[in-house]
Design a protein around this nucleic acid. Structure first.
Lengths: 196, 196
DNA sequence: AGGATAACCAAGCAAGCGCTAGTGTAATAG
DNA sequence: CTATTACACTAGCGCTTGCTTGGTTATCCT
């Protein structure tokens, strides 16, 4: 069996697994279903992954890794003012949420199925991502752009964003950027006439 | 087997099932685990419920029913102004979310495991609940209390509230009412000095 | 007392589960 | 040319799953 390689073959298998995990749920997805989707027999699966759990970990790792990459890139190319950074972060969050939708849905709703070892490993990645948010929120608070408790505000914002995977339809009239802008507009005090 | 009765025994079994479903997830909860928690043998379970799915449906029905009751009561005893109604609704949402926490976590995260028949039945209950929200949000928008798209605003608010089950610790310093107030404060424009 | 009914149990079936063992084969490296 | 490696296959083991069956006990109503 392979240990922790990142062959293109394995990446493709991970992508297919993510889709099935979202469709059926991790527990209801059998190794036989996974194998069929990949065009191989169930036994062959264990040449690429040591067990079913490792497939789950691979899916989540891939998604979180991409989220980090996209968010960092967005912050780098964003103007320095707090509102622009807040908007950039919200947009980046929704961008990764819907380009890697399958992986993120799995990360959000099947996290508990990871064994302790995988959880410990992946927590670091997730924490690094959340640190970006905390920084952006803090900056916005200090600038007086938004008000309230830093802990609660970040939780509420992330909750509102993450929950979009439950109702947002990419085929609809709104783009992810529209959503991000609307959310930011909702939480920063309305502009006065003097600003217009 | 019993059909659709609401005996006190069945209610107690439903409560225990909800707890296990939250702890382990619906799929990972076996009928043997359920039976043991209830102090009976696995076969006896099917005297009370026709199959495992019906237990899930019972859990969700109970939770949603309570949510409706609490929200209606809260709106009845609330002052008529839009801000008070918005706050009352947010408080009621969090109140039911944490007094019937198990049932609601199951409703939010195991909904997909229901068969089509149960989904159709329970959708009506859920829609009735959401209608209360839509009304409150609409009133707040018309009064100019909050701004934005009515659809998006209600989704964002419900998302932020529902996501609290993932991080809120009832043993911590904050009460659910604190959370509700903070969220409401976050989305309505800050009060001017002239209001103080 | 007697009859119905609700609640339970012991035993186990058929199906499906994750995973392993052993083998075959084509491509690659020394 | 030979040895290694990557990838796939067949076959099935050992176990767990949701659920059924047939029968027993406790409770209640008349």
């Amino acid at each position: 069996m392979n240990v922790m390689n990142a062959s293109p073959r394995r990446k493709e298998l991970t992508r297919l697994a993510a889709q099935l995990f979202v469709q059926e749920g991790f527990d209801k997805t059998t190794v036989r279903m996974l194998a069929q989707e990949m065009g191989i027999k169930s036994g062959s699966l264990f040449h690429h992954f040591k067990d079913k759990q490792e497939i789950l970990a691979a899916v989540i790792e891939e998604g979180t890794h991409n989220a980090l990459r996209i968010a960092r890139r967005a912050l780098e190319s964003s103007p320095a003012d707090p509102e622009a950074r807040l908007r950039a972060m919200a947009r980046a969050h929704l961008e990764t949420l819907f380009t890697d939708r399958n992986a993120h849905v799995v990360a959000l709703f099947e996290w508990r199925r990871l064994d302790d070892e995988a959880k410990a490993h992946l927590s670091h990645l997730r924490d690094a991502y959340e640190a970006l948010w905390v920084d952006v929120i803090d900056t916005a608070l200090e600038a007086g752009l938004i008000h309230g408790d830093r802990f609660l505000v970040s939780r509420f914002v992330l909750g509102a964003l993450n929950w979009t995977v439950r109702w947002y339809d990419p085929a609809g009239p709104r783009t992810p950027d529209d959503l991000a802008d609307e959310l930011v507009a909702m939480i920063i005090p309305v502009k006065r006439e003097s600003d217009l």
